[in-house]
């Protein structure tokens, strides 16, 4: 099985980091993987995305033409990538930030008010980790418990104090999927 994951939104939402946590989890599981960021001149704002491939087979191109997992944290990203998702794929939408619904009927949409949930735990910047938790629970691309280990090994020294909050955010995402029966 090959998971082709695109995580997209604004710069500063931590999309590259959540992608890295996923990629590192795949490494821990001994899977084949690649992680590819978009890069632009701006450090904050602007559009930003990263492509993560997790596979049992060697990865060919790290560039994803048709993702089967899409995570979007702003509307321009949903507009840009919705049509690219392969049939049967899953879109994870931060419904606190995106008001519109997914239009396609041949893909599954999961709406998570991730930014609102993150605000409630006083950590608005961790919406990305909530959605990551939802992705791993829903798709099984990596085992949810491996994400915890990945986070511990990936988080920078500067943000080490936020490890527990990050872990909690991932857990909230996992629980969201459990409770919403999807």
């Amino acid at each position: 099985m090959t998971y082709e994951v695109i995580m997209a939104g604004f710069g500063g939402q931590g999309l590259l980091f959540s992608g890295k946590v996923l990629a590192h989890a795949a490494l821990i599981e001994g899977k084949e993987l690649s992680w590819l960021p978009s890069y632009g001149p701006e450090m904050r704002g602007g559009t930003c995305n990263c492509s993560v491939i997790v596979s049992d087979d060697p990865v060919g191109s790290p560039i994803i033409a048709r993702p089967n997992v899409l995570m979007v944290m702003n509307e321009p990203s949903l507009d840009k990538f919705e049509s690219a998702v392969s049939a049967g794929g899953t879109v994870f939408v931060d419904s606190s930030l995106i008001s519109r619904k997914v239009e396609r009927t041949d893909i599954e949409a999961v709406y998570i008010p991730a930014t609102q949930m993150a605000k409630e735990m006083n950590a608005v910047s961790l919406a990305n980790m909530i959605i990551l938790g939802a992705i791993v629970k829903k798709t099984g691309c990596v085992a949810p418990e491996v994400v915890e280990k990945s986070l511990r090994e990936t988080i920078s020294a500067r943000k080490a104090a936020l490890l527990d909050l990050n872990l909690k955010a991932v857990e909230m995402g996992i629980r969201f999927i459990e409770e919403n029966g999807k």
Binding site: K20, L27, S34, L36, P37, Y39, V59
Partner: peptide, 9 residues
């Protein structure tokens, strides 16, 4: 640039 920016094991 892709090769420089991408991560792999």
């Amino acid at each position: 640039g892709t090769m420089g920016q991408m991560m792999e094991p």
